[in-house]
């Protein structure tokens, strides 16, 4: 059973630059294990303590798996899986001051 998995830019170092790879499995957890077999190191970037990392989003057919059963979400032939890192951040934890602005800065 092959499912297309879309890989974000930041993880393409694990897939030789490929934007999408095929993986097999009947749940997202199995897909991730299969990805790991072919692209060692990628699992750690996606999963932590048996859960999808807080700042990684995984979608099966456009649905965020947080709302559909997390790693146990079922996948099948022809389904599309998209992985996207969260776009997030914020001033919390900015205690360390940065260097002065470049000259001529606005």
């Amino acid at each position: 059973m092959a499912t297309e998995v879309r890989i974000p830019t930041i993880l393409r170092t694990y897939t030789d630059g490929q934007r999408a790879v095929e993986a097999s499995g009947s749940t997202v957890a199995e897909l991730v294990d299969d990805l790991e077999n072919n692209h060692p190191g990628i699992k750690e970037r996606l999963v932590e303590d048996g859960e999808v990392r807080r700042f990684v989003n995984v979608y099966v057919n456009d649905e965020d798996i947080r709302f559909t059963g997390a790693l146990e979400t079922a996948v099948g032939d022809g389904d599309t899986v998209v992985i996207l890192p969260a776009v997030a951040g914020g001033s919390v934890g900015s205690a360390a001051q940065g260097p002065a602005p470049l000259p001529g800065h606005r």
Binding site: P8, T9, I10, F55, P85, A86, V87, A88, G89, G90, S91, V92, G93, S94, A95, A96, Q97, G98, P99
Partner: peptide
């Protein structure tokens, strides 16, 4: 200026 959080989460 980017915070520690900004740096850790930057993915592009």
């Amino acid at each position: 200026y980017p915070s520690r959080t900004d740096i850790n989460l930057a993915s592009e």
